[in-house]
């Protein structure tokens, strides 16, 4: 049993989409992020991101759009494991996988299709999306149900918690 609410990791591509208004996923990313923020406010989820991936958006923490997001600090051992991780030659992807594994994160907000190959719950899903759908609140309810329905993913042995 985990005492903390389930973690949702905001992956690098998702952070970029939020930050860049010209990004093709920007509108969808903001929509989903606002739903996640609402769940964070109700203490249903914890929003986290890999420390290295947050670095370009450092000014956005504390008082910016990423104020609710906690950084997962990257240590030497994480980089060492990422170096040894088979992740299609992409160090950033490898680091994301390592941090997900080490911090028991199973839900990842990302637009990187490569993450679909791993046993992670990706947000948003691959369904087509328009600004009008899903209706406000529905996505939040679905996500809350999803998170509540699969708590086992976030349970971790005490000794693994960093």
């Amino acid at each position: 049993m985990s005492l903390d609410p389930p973690k949702v990791l905001l992956e690098q591509s998702f952070l970029r989409s939020i930050a860049d208004p010209t990004d093709s996923h920007h509108e969808r990313a903001v929509h989903l992020y606002l739903d996640l923020v609402q769940q964070y406010e109700q203490e249903q989820v914890l929003l986290v991101a890999v420390g290295d991936h947050l670095r370009p958006h450092r000014g956005w923490q504390r008082s910016g759009p990423l104020a609710p997001v906690e950084a997962l600090p990257v240590g030497f051992q994480h980089r060492r494991w990422a170096h040894r991780t088979e992740a299609q030659g992409d160090p950033a992807l490898a680091l994301t996988l390592v941090m997900c594994q080490r911090h028991k994160v199973r839900r990842v907000a990302s637009f990187d299709p490569r993450l679909q190959q791993y046993d992670l719950v990706l947000l948003p899903d691959a369904a087509p999306w328009s600004a009008d759908q899903p209706p406000a609140g529905e996505l939040a309810g679905e996500l809350a149900g999803d998170l509540a329905g699969a708590p086992a993913d976030d349970t971790g042995s005490p000794a693994d918690n960093e």
Binding site: Y33, L34, V37, W60, R62, S63, G64, A67, P68
Partner: peptide, 13 residues
């Protein structure tokens, strides 16, 4: 604190 942070995120966006 949670509300403040959430409010900052919403305001910024």
């Amino acid at each position: 604190t949670r509300r403040l942070r959430a409010g900052r995120a919403r305001a910024a966006l």
